[in-house]
Structures are given as C-alpha cells and as structure tokens.
Design a binder for these strands. Structure first.
Lengths: 228, 228
DNA sequence: ATATAAGCGGTTATCGATAATCGTTGACCA
DNA sequence: TGGTCAACGATTATCGATAACCGCTTATAT
C-alpha cells in the first residue's frame, strides 16, 4: 500500500472532520476496532490518532473504557474568553509594530469576513476571523505564545461559536469590530493595540454569553423531552 | 504479569524521571525498542508514552526518525515569562478574593521557600514556589486557565531556572518577592493582585535574563573548544 | 574524480493476534 | 424479593513479528 504520510495522521484528519462536521457528536464513543475496520487498517494507528486528539482536547479517554468525543459545556466555552483576551492582549502589544507590514493582509481578512457574514457562512467567516487573529499572533514573534494560543483550539471553537452567533444574532456586525485593532497597528501603538485586542475578545465573549443564555431556553425544552 | 496501572503510564513516569534527573539530556535519542527491551516490555506502551510526552513538550519526534529529548534554548525560556505574566495576572485578578481562605497556605509556601533558598536547595525551593503559584491559579477557578498554565510545564522549568539562579545569584531574595501578592490578597484587591503577579513574574524573567547572559560567556568559551 | 544507484544496519510504523478489563446478564441462593 | 457472583460479549492494552523508511556506505558508471 502506497502512502504519503503516516496513517495515524490521516486517521486524525478524518476523525477531526467527522467531529467538526457533526457526523459524530459530543459524547459519542469512538471505538478503536470499529474505526480501524471501517478504514481498512489496523488498530494501532487509530489508537495513536485518538491519543493525539486527547492532547488537542477533542477527545477524552478513560483507561480500559475507551474514547469518546469530548463534551464542551457552556462553562468551558465561557472560561476561554478571559484567557484568550489575556494572551491576545500580549500578542497585540508585542505585534503592534511588526504587524505593520501585514496591514494589507489583515484588511483582506476583515473584508472576507464581512462577505462571509453577509452570506451567513459560518465556516468561511471563522476561517478568516482565525486568520486575522493568527496573523497578529505570529507577528508577536513569541513561539511560546503562539503555541499556547494554538493549544486553545481557537479555530475549531470559533467555528462553533460563529455558527451559533450567526444563527441567533445575525444583526451584529462582527467583522467591523476588528477595525480598532487595525487602526492601532497602523498607528504603531503597542499599548493601544494590546488594549484593542483584549477588548475585542472580551466583547466577543460577552456576545457569546448572551447567545448561550438564549440558547439555553431552547435546550432546556428540547432536553426535557428527549433526555430521560 | 500483575500491574496496577497501564504500562504506558509507568513508562512515562520513568522516562520523565530520567529527564528531570538529568540521566538523559536534551538532544539525546529515545529509541523505542531499546527502552522497551530495557524495561522488559513491548514497543507499544513505550511508543504511547513518548507520544504523550510530546504533548507535554518534553520530547520531540520526527516521523520515521524517532524521538529525542527536547532542547530548550534561551530564547524559549525567555519567551515564557511574558506569557506566564499575562496568565498569572489574570489568575491574580480572578483569585484575589477567593484566595483569601488560602492565605495561611500561601505563607507556608513563602516560608518553606525562604528556608530552601538559604539551604541552596533548588529542587525544594522550586517545589514551594510552584505550589504558591499553583494555589493562586486554582483559586482563579478557571479550568481553562489552569490547564493552559499547566501546559507551560512551569514546574519543570522553574526547577531548572532556580538551579541556575541559586548558582549564579545567591544574593537575591527570591522568596520575599511574594509578599506583595499575599498583601494584595489579604486586601482583597483584584486589580492589585493581578498587577503584583504580573510584576513578580516579569521580574523573575528579568533576573533570569541576566543570569543567562552571564552564563552565555561561560558557555561561549566552553562551546568554542568542544564544539567543532 | 563525481554523481547516481544498490545494499545494509538500525529504527519506526503498522499489522494481526492475544491477554486483561469492563459492564451486563442471568443463574443461584438466602 | 433482593443480593452475590460466574460467565459472556465487547473493547482496550499489550505483545511479537514484519513492512516501510532513513541515513550511510559501497559499488558502478560517466
């Protein structure tokens, strides 16, 4: 069998896609042997992929009991924003000057975001939103900071977040909220840039909180009848 | 063969100890089959342990080339402090009130730290220093924040850091620098507590920078003759 | 000489099989 | 009726063997 990359890597991508697309839902079991059979490979690479996904916090395993897609509850989502805000404030401060050469790139991101938002395309919007933030993170030139930020899996979470947001609050211009950051970079003001980043992320968190609360009412009703 | 926990877990502990104790050094290869033979087990659990340690950033692997103990260079060490400072500022802000019931515990930490410092016992000092910071982190009651902080492997790094520091700069009273934080908690002032944490960590980073630079002169001389 | 290719030792990546463990079911007994 | 436990099916954890791969050395041809 010819193969370009290691199998476990391919398995990981496939499983990740299953999760992101919603084909498997939080709480679902991920049985090594079943996945292996379905993909026509042996158990080992599947097992390895699953362990990797534990590190990414997409999956949780209990010894001798197996893996399942991790449930992300409201509390966890809400806890992320303060942490993101801190990290991105630092990134903004560090990147304000260095990011100037990426101004065009950042504006493209905001532009695409706006378009995707109007089209109610959460996935594309998340992609450009993440791209915007990632650009600034990279410009911070602090590898530890970048890795730490990556470990929060912003990309995946942003997708979910924006899906919710677009569904529930289609009137908020999310893309436009990025302009103060671009302005601060253009001015080359680290303080202001850090502050703008922090505010932006915190605001995002605030909006999400509202969405969650609105969502909860629905979930409560649905959950009450389908649970049991 | 009787066994209490999963083998891969035991392997991980053993390898971790090898690294922390310096029996294996940064850059050393970790060959799956050799470790397996030495421990009298098969390759699989070793492999799994190594992958786990990659997630912990103690080990790095290149596909088809194997694992080695990760090298931590000066740049990386120095990059950590700004990130730590951001995270711990947030922790301090969130924990200021809730940590009040742990005041005694915190004072014990500082006390033990002072004693260990006088005895030039880096390991013990690191232990209590980490304990101090961990207590505040936990009091922040933000799981994501705690996990993120943990992922920086503060514990291991602090040990190395303090070893250096005690060797080179035995005149700095590191333990005493924790009092402003304790005071802010006693006062129940979130702003002040966050600020005190940030300053403390940044200061720690500054001191380390000096140590590193002093160290570099030695390393340069040694490296120049032994490298080639 | 120099570049390309074939061969080799050492190691990783994957396989297929087996042992160990978990949750459940149902028999047995007080 | 209720509780304990043996046996079972499903799944994970581990094993031992093999295929695939990397880096290097040696052979071959230009």
């Amino acid at each position: 069998m010819i193969q370009r990359v290691v199998l476990s890597e391919q398995v990981k991508e496939e499983l990740l896609d299953d999760i992101m697309s919603g084909r498997v839902k939080p709480g679902d079991r991920l049985v090594e042997s079943q996945i292996a059979k379905r993909m026509g490979i042996s158990q080992s690479p599947v097992r390895e992929a699953l362990r990797d996904m534990v590190a990414m916090r997409f999956v949780e395993v209990e010894p001798h009991k197996g893996a399942r897609v991790r449930r992300i509850d409201e509390r966890e989502v809400m806890e992320i924003y303060p942490v993101r805000a801190s990290l991105e404030q630092l990134a903004g401060t560090l990147a304000a000057v260095r990011a100037q050469k990426h101004i065009d790139e950042l504006e493209v991101c905001v532009d695409r975001m706006t378009k995707a938002f109007k089209a109610k395309d959460a996935r594309t919007m998340a992609k450009w939103d993440v791209q915007f933030h990632r650009t600034i993170l990279e410009a911070s030139d602090n590898q530890i900071l970048i890795q730490t930020w990556n470990s929060l899996m912003i990309e995946a979470r942003t997708y979910v977040t924006l899906s919710n947001l677009i569904t529930h609050k289609s009137d908020i211009d999310l893309a436009g909220r990025h302009y103060p950051i671009v302005d601060a970079i253009r001015a080359g003001d680290p303080e202001a840039c850090g502050e703008a980043m922090r505010q932006h992320v915190e605001e995002f968190g605030e909006v999400m909180k509202v969405v969650f609360e609105a969502d909860q009412e629905v979930t409560d009703l649905v959950g009450a009848s389908s649970a049991a």
